[in-house]
Write a protein that binds this DNA or RNA. Structure first.
Lengths: 142, 142
DNA sequence: CTAAAGCCTAGTAATGCAATAGGAAATAGA
DNA sequence: TCTATTTCCTATTGCATTACTAGGCTTTAG
């Protein structure tokens, strides 16, 4: 699995915050309820996003989370790379594993490199604002 | 990680067998030595490939493994899907997990679907013969 | 008959994922 | 200042998967 729950939840939460931007700071409790995700688990994920300055968190009454940039300035790729650690499809391309001893002669390395580029390019081409549904977040009634 | 050692090893072994096609049946011992993979671990992987009829295995003296089709008739995608079980980038798209309850309204589902198609289409477009190096497998001397 | 090979079922150690627990620190409002 | 609310931080746990090992059985050629 390339993307685990951590990355999937993170993306859903970012979209949620983008959709509810107008409401100002949103407390974790509200996001967790809306998205059906455990509050405690979400805490970890949001902490990661805050530390990377993708979100701003504020504590205390009236606190909560808010995006630090407009939605069109977030790519899905950066959100997932941050929360997943890496989007490399195989260990061979992962940072720590700096090329195995066979990389010079490996007949399959190019496949992995191409795949890696394909994945990252696609995900870097999708921005948060493209994932906002037109009428979500307004609590409108027909 | 989308592809684990099992899939990576399987692909390398398939390429190895494609390169040494001319030598007839190749014993596991030889492949393992050439590829630097534990014999016992390789056994599992080769068993999977044999059961799926991608390889033919024969026991006894003079036995070993051989491809059942010409290299251009194997795609990387089918080899990896077989050995990995699935190439789905997220659990949401995996067979057993038949769509979560939120799939109707999930703003991120399309991203995963597109990514899944991208990955599978690319890997299904690469065939074994494209991975054979021109001069490998001939033990030539300059 | 024997050596060389694949086949089969388990088992295990290590890793990473998903989630939980408990409290400390900050903030707004009464 | 007190209290409720909310984020922040560190650890821990249960579980599943991955990577690999062990041991024995069966088949085949010479």
């Amino acid at each position: 699995m390339l993307v685990s729950t951590k990355g999937r939840y993170a993306l859903r939460v970012m979209v949620d915050l983008a959709e509810h931007q107008a409401a100002g700071r949103i407390p974790l409790k509200e996001i967790a309820a809306r998205q059906g995700i455990s509050e405690k688990y979400l805490e970890n994920i949001l902490a990661t996003l805050v530390r990377a300055n993708m979100l701003s968190g504020m504590r205390g009454k009236g606190g909560g989370y808010v995006l630090t940039r407009p939605p069109e300035q977030y790519t899905v790729g950066e959100i997932l790379r941050l929360t997943e650690g890496s989007l490399a499809p195989v260990a061979c391309l992962d940072g720590d594993c700096k090329g195995c001893s066979r990389s010079d002669e490996c007949p399959t390395l190019d496949v992995w490199k191409n795949l890696d580029k394909l994945i990252n390019d696609y995900l870097d081409g999708v921005t948060l604002d493209q994932l906002i549904a037109p009428n979500r977040g307004y609590d409108y009634v027909i």
